[in-house]
Design a protein around this nucleic acid. Sequence first.
DNA 1: CAGTGGTCTAGACCACGAA
DNA 2: TCGTGGTCTAGACCACTGT
Lengths: 247, 247
Amino acid sequence: MTRSVPSRHHDIADDLRQQITTGRIKPGERLPSEADLADRYKVSTVTLRSALAVLQGEGLVEKIHGKGNFVRRPPRKIVYVGGWGTLDPWTAADAALRVTVRTTSVPADGHLTTLLKVPTGSPLTEFFCVSHEEESPRGLARIYIPHDLLPAGVLDDEPSWQETALRLAVLGSQPATVRETVCARPPTPDEASALRTGSSKTVLAITRVATDTTGRVVEAALLAFPGDRVEAVFTTHHMTDERQTQG
Amino acid sequence: MTRSVPSRHHDIADDLRQQITTGRIKPGERLPSEADLADRYKVSTVTLRSALAVLQGEGLVEKIHGKGNFVRRPPRKIVYVGGWGTLDPWTAADAALRVTVRTTSVPADGHLTTLLKVPTGSPLTEFFCVSHEEESPRGLARIYIPHDLLPAGVLDDEPSWQETALRLAVLGSQPATVRETVCARPPTPDEASALRTGSSKTVLAITRVATDTTGRVVEAALLAFPGDRVEAVFTTHHMTDERQTQG
DNA sequence: CAGTGGTCTAGACCACGAA
DNA sequence: TCGTGGTCTAGACCACTGT
């Protein structure tokens, strides 16, 4: 299935891609300037830039205005474990993965009232978590918990809670069911700035709602990850001959 | 956070987007030709095309070579239910959703041997399912089952199996656990052609592995959906004080 | 300041779709 | 054939980064 109508910028992208994947140009290295490359390939700057756009879309190249085009370090994927609402141990234990948590109180409104099934204006506690690895954002979590469900001491920088939050784990106590909705979509402006989603242009968004045995929603979480850097794993255990009805 | 440096093509994209979302230009309608639009906005064709590229990336506009630019009909999302490996009843019952299934025998190789934990060359049955709605592909499933686990009659177009397969459901009998890995990534060439992924440029890929009580893999499925048209829902029931260890 | 990427132009030629 | 989108050029000017 070769291109019947080869386009110059694809040829150039192919050539550069090979130089990158074969290690001729190493991760972190700067490519020649666009003007130089255009000159070398005998094309206009526009054409050369469209070649780079291809590689950028593939996550191989990062463009930095005023500095140059750089070969991206191949990102290790982070793994989100569904049902537990946590990063997997291997990922979470990674020392290079730093997480900052900001805790605030907000009134419920909009989607949150729907997700949490609380009236508009109900007091919520928001955990705003951003995880970084080497300056590059790896994940964004906004976790909301009804204020009255929050044990005392949480807002006083109690370390264990910070520990839990930074793994993006379910914070509510003893959830009976966790419902997670996954979709791939372009980032909201908020997410785009927080994740600096210059590369993947799409985020893997997970909306997590945890419910206790009485049916009360004990947590709602909005998670967003760069689409090309995350994998979400969900495991379902089926009891034989006890296939529950779907909700 | 307004653009400090407005770019003409973004302004044009904004203008066109408003005309689309307010209904001034209706779904299915053709936009004026690029030459006309470039003329009206007093920009070059390149600039105008980059404006359209923005809208195309947002899924608002579909470009058809030789015909024009068309406003896309807002797609209803299809819902994939995790754990059950099926489209939800509402989606699956949709009369407009047609599914074609092709059944073939293939030897295991590459990823499949790993997923299914079978030796290279083991006989597998492949269900190749494509679901369409009104000419636009909605999902692609490649379901693999070890040949000896397949009840007789399946390959004879037995209707109930076709029924099951076209819902992309788990085909193996009585799986004990289903493990689903979700990621957002660009489509493989296969997927791109099958899904005609001109719009979203990324697919939501689900790898599903079903295991029986003895630990044997009874099914592996590779699912791919246009990223902007699907939602996957996973529900986990936690037994109180019986938090299983993670595998 | 010099070097880099970001945007844009006016026009050319090619490839596709419907007559 | 004609009108459409797809690609490309050679050069211009602007914005960002470092010295």
